[in-house]
C-alpha cells in the first residue's frame, strides 16, 4: 500500500515537472511570437509613413473637401449613364472571353485529367495572369491598342482568364471519377470523357464562378478608365483632377447604385444554378 502511494507520488511529481517544462516552453514560444508580430507591425508603421495625427491636424481642410461632395451634380446624368453602360459592356466582354478561354485552360490545369508536364506549365502561366493586376494590364494594353474601352476589355480578359482557370480546375479536381470511368469504358475519346463525364458535374459551379467574376469585373471596369482604358473611370479621373467635386460625387453614387444592382441580380441568378 505504502509502496503504491509512493510510486504514484513519484509519477505525479515527474508528471507535473514535465508539464511545467512544457508550460515554460510554450510560454517562451508565445512571447517570441508576440514580440515578432509587434516588431513587424512597428517596422511596417514606419514604412507606410503612418501619421494619424494628420487626420486631426487637417480636419478643417478635409471638412471643406467633403462639403464639396455634399451637393452631387447630376446635371449631366445622360453622359454618366452612357459611360456607365460602356463600363458594363467592357466587363461583359472581358468576362465572356475569359470564360471561353478558361474552360480548356481550366481542364489543362487539373491534375486528375492531364499529366504533370501539361498542368505544371499551364498553371504557371495562369499564375502570371493572376499575379498582375487588371490596372497594370490596362496600362500595357493602352500602349498596345490605344486609349479606349478595348484596352479595358483585354486587360480584364487576361486577368480573369487566370482567375477562372484556377477556380474551374479546382472544381474539376473535386469531381467523382467513377462516371468518367464509365464513359471511358464505352470506348470514348479523352475529349469525350471530359464533355460527358466532367463538364456535367462541374457546370453549376462554373456558372456560379463566372457570374461572380462578372460582378467583380464591373467593379474593376470602373477603375481601368483611370489609366485611359475606357468606361466611367475616364470621367471620374477627369473630374477628380479638375476638382469638380459635385460631379465626382454624382459619378460615385452612380457606380455604387449600378454595382449594387448587378450584385443583387447576379446573386439571384447564381442561387438558381446551385
Amino acid at each position: 500500500m505504502g509502496q503504491t502511494t509512493l510510486g504514484e507520488d513519484a509519477s505525479t511529481r515527474t508528471g507535473s515537472a514535465a508539464l511545467q517544462r512544457k508550460d515554460l516552453k510554450s510560454n517562451i514560444l508565445n512571447l517570441l511570437g508576440w514580440a515578432a508580430a509587434i516588431g513587424v507591425l512597428t517596422w511596417s508603421w514606419e514604412g507606410a509613413e503612418m501619421r494619424p495625427g494628420d487626420l486631426i491636424a487637417f480636419a478643417p481642410n478635409m471638412a471643406e473637401f467633403a462639403s464639396g461632395f455634399m451637393q452631387p451634380d447630376f446635371l449631366q446624368w445622360r453622359h454618366f449613364l452612357g459611360e456607365m453602360i460602356v463600363t458594363i459592356q467592357i466587363a461583359l466582354w472581358g468576362t465572356l472571353l475569359a470564360v471561353v478561354l478558361a474552360v480548356p485552360l481550366g481542364i489543362l490545369c487539373s491534375e486528375n485529367v492531364v499529366p504533370w508536364w501539361i498542368y505544371q506549365p499551364v498553371r504557371r502561366v495562369m499564375d502570371a495572369f493572376r499575379a498582375i493586376n487588371e490596372m497594370v494590364f490596362a496600362m500595357l494594353f493602352v500602349v498596345a491598342v490605344g486609349l479606349g474601352p478595348f484596352a479595358g476589355v483585354l486587360a480584364l480578359f487576361v486577368h480573369t482568364t487566370g482567375v477562372l482557370a484556377k477556380l474551374f480546375s479546382e472544381a474539376v479536381e473535386a469531381i467523382d471519377p467513377r462516371p468518367v470511368e464509365g464513359i471511358r469504358a464505352t470506348g470514348a475519346t479523352a475529349v469525350q470523357e471530359v464533355i460527358y463525364g466532367i463538364i456535367p458535374q462541374v457546370l453549376p459551379l462554373w456558372i456560379s464562378y463566372s457570374l461572380y467574376r462578372f460582378e467583380s469585373n464591373v467593379r474593376s471596369a470602373t477603375v481601368v478608365g483611370l489609366v485611359g482604358a475606357g468606361g466611367i473611370g475616364v470621367l471620374l479621373w477627369e473630374y477628380i483632377r479638375g476638382f469638380y467635386y459635385s460631379e465626382t460625387a454624382a459619378v460615385m453614387i452612380m457606380i455604387i447604385v449600378t454595382v449594387s444592382l448587378l450584385d443583387v441580380f447576379s446573386q439571384f441568378i447564381r442561387k438558381r444554378f446551385t
Binding site: 464509365g182 469504358a185 458535374q201 457546370l203
Partner: peptide, 13 residues
Amino acid sequence: GVIFQQFNLVNRL
C-alpha cells in the same frame, strides 16, 4: 460493356 458496383452513370444527365 462494363457495369460497375456504383453504376457510374453521370448524375446530371
